[in-house]
């Protein structure tokens, strides 16, 4: 292989690594994380960059949902501690600024970032298949309080969005 071809091959490899690096964190969380269910509320149904998707808000997105939520600087890391309720949904109980250790089995910590008075967890965008776009948007509007998401949370608190459920309908 001559030098020119080698450089070209390296450039293609770099593009492949970047491409695979985009979902790497989410793939790891999906593979190693535990399942939790969160209640959602749709906010914004359209984005021009990635096509159609819903921007999801959660109870844990509001600092007011926690009794001890501090006010942090932009992008500062915060961990939301959630606990599984009797209905299977995980509810906010506290926040921590370090990853909590030795949580009981019915509790989990999700890593978030402070952003303009809200906490973002990297699970706010759910891509909508084009053919189901209107169906999902309609479903979400009509059953705003019935929407849940299945999420994986790994040992570091990173979360990955798996699917959206509205009553007995599942969207992946």
């Amino acid at each position: 292989m001559n030098k020119r071809t080698l450089f070209f091959a390296i450039a293609v490899a770099v593009q492949l690594v970047i491409l695979l690096g985009v979902p790497a964190r989410k793939v790891y969380t999906r593979a190693t994380g535990r399942d939790i269910v969160l209640q959602v509320a749709p906010v914004d149904p359209y984005d021009v960059l990635k096509g159609y998707y819903v921007t999801l808000g959660y109870d844990i997105s509001r600092p007011g949902a926690f009794p001890n939520a501090p006010t942090l600087a932009v992008n500062e890391v915060i961990y939301a501690i959630v606990e599984q309720a009797e209905d299977g949904i995980w509810k906010p109980i506290a926040t921590a600024q370090e990853l909590p250790q030795n949580l009981p089995a019915n509790q989990a910590a999700i890593r978030g970032r402070w952003h303009q008075g809200r906490i973002l967890y990297g699970i706010e965008e759910f891509s909508i298949p084009e053919s189901k776009r209107d169906v999902i948007a309609d479903d979400l509007n009509k059953n705003r309080n019935e929407a849940r998401v299945d999420v994986k949370v790994d040992a570091n608190g990173e979360a990955a969005l798996l699917r959206l459920r509205i009553q007995d309908r599942v969207y992946e």
Partner: peptide, 20 residues
């Protein structure tokens, strides 16, 4: 190919619901 690379970044983020 480099244009496809850009489109693929968006699609990859879409498949795995990557927010950012």
């Amino acid at each position: 190919g480099s244009l496809v690379f850009g489109a693929n970044i968006g699609l990859m983020a879409q498949i795995f619901h990557v927010s950012g």
